[in-house]
Design a protein around this nucleic acid. Sequence first.
DNA 1: TTGTAAGCGTTATCAT
DNA 2: ATGATAACGCTTACAA
Lengths: 334, 334
Amino acid sequence: MTDLATVAKQAGVSRATAARAFSQPDLVRPETSQKVFAAARKLGFRPNHLGRQLRTQATHIIGVLIPSLDNPVFAEQLQAMEVAARERGYALLIATTDYDPEREADIVEELLRQRVDGLIMTVADAHENALLRQLDAENIPYLLVYNQLDTLDAPCVCVDNRQAMFDATRHLQQLGHRHIGMVAGPMLQSDRAKLRYQGYCQAMLAQRHVALPIIEMPQHTRSSFEVLAPWLDNDTPLTALLCSNDLLAISVIGDLQRAGLRVPDQVSVIGFDGIALGEQLCPSLCSVVQPRQAIGRAAVEGLLALMGGEQARLEKLPHQLRLGESVGPLPWPN
Amino acid sequence: MTDLATVAKQAGVSRATAARAFSQPDLVRPETSQKVFAAARKLGFRPNHLGRQLRTQATHIIGVLIPSLDNPVFAEQLQAMEVAARERGYALLIATTDYDPEREADIVEELLRQRVDGLIMTVADAHENALLRQLDAENIPYLLVYNQLDTLDAPCVCVDNRQAMFDATRHLQQLGHRHIGMVAGPMLQSDRAKLRYQGYCQAMLAQRHVALPIIEMPQHTRSSFEVLAPWLDNDTPLTALLCSNDLLAISVIGDLQRAGLRVPDQVSVIGFDGIALGEQLCPSLCSVVQPRQAIGRAAVEGLLALMGGEQARLEKLPHQLRLGESVGPLPWPN
DNA sequence: TTGTAAGCGTTATCAT
DNA sequence: ATGATAACGCTTACAA
């Protein structure tokens, strides 16, 4: 592959001049530029970013850490980030972690060896996280997405998970529901799931309703009717379910319907995330919408700001309750 | 950031020796290695891939071109590729094109400037594609995914789209359906959508059924009931619909149900892709499953093979019809 | 406006 | 087994 030196020779100028023709065209006489470009075209010259990056100590590459692309939330947000990044001249080097802290660490190390300019990550648990401390210590720009750290002034972009689930619960209560449960994946795996549970509990307590323990599914995005059944069979059956994400909600609705229960006539269901697909379903999925586009964009802009030396701050974006046919009023008042 | 020279000095050896301690440990005395590693740890040394890549002329990075991450098919397949690539020591630099040929070209150029070792792409139309010709001419290893070029020996990984849709149509016919339509996005946008339509037509002709024109939706993944209604209202209403992708199928089912039609009692629906979510729905989605895991893996392995000098070939992976509750027998024989 | 030369962090070749 | 040195392709003072 031809390099700048060859182009320069062909154009009858020095390497420096040839380089300038590309990076600082205003410093070079137009005719000279033309000669350089002509030579470049003729030789099929393609600038080598590696050389430039090595020299300038900046790659214009952002490392992205995502739990999984199988969940549309992350995929859709990645899509938004990719567009935002490209607009600003940055490329994305991505990796999936499956919420495994060990993988997280390995991959970050790998990304840093590639000399990414900064990191955008969604980690399993942001509290007491050794990896984040290390990044802090090394002064490496990073920004968390979805993770919510209210305690410290951590650089993150997210919605107010507690408030969001509070609002969703409130909505059900206003429709007359009292026996409301919250369904989630294993062990409230993520820090934000915990906050959502808090929001649920607060709303329940505020109305002197009973805040129940989490209905814990074996998988993050898949319902198990066996786990669900006991809550619907007893003498005070649940009339509404809050789910920690949309895929889980959709799965729950499917299970309910297969068991002969009508949604929302007998059980109302609310999801979390507001994935696009939810609106297409019948019944359409009522869900707490996280503004994924805005989150993706804010993440990129925020990281660039950090790299530019700005102070880290927690950016809370507004959530919104998207109404849907999966929720209805309490059929029989009690 | 500390570099190899510093580490070498600290360890009391030459740069070359320090380098070898990392890349060819067997060429260096164990004690010496230890000294180097100790120094590296002490100094917080992190190998700089840019230096290595510039020198070795290989990045171990694969450029990935995807139409959109908003469609779970691509997201799930990207997930599979990421895992497969990492296993083989490769990272993924990704970009989305929104099926825009201009973006496709720009992005490929950008990726090549970054000196990716090869490209994995899903392009809008692989026939008569100038970009692909250019890559051929420059001898740059690339591999297409989902795109199906039967004519030439193009490097691609896909299912047999024609046969797959043929099978799906056949399945409906065997259940007694005769009035079967195919629903797709605008203008059979992609080359594979055309092949799928061919499969539908062939199956219809084979049974002396009438192959209808495409029922064309304004969007790739969203149904419009206005477009659908005329086909269900007339004196020979359709009793089954084939959809060009799962998101569209789900949207179609939602529209039908909202219009008071029962699925599958009145209308059967089959999707294409077999996204994970489809199994959760009620009715569960009958769909032609593309083996996304296998496709992702085959794409990575295939590209590495190409880079290793092997001959390009079209790799067809087996599709499978996943049965589901969205399809039923013809209720009233005619 | 253009040229010279040094350096970014590796690895590979050739000696020792 | 180890060391010296020259690339890899680019940018950027500094000089002219």
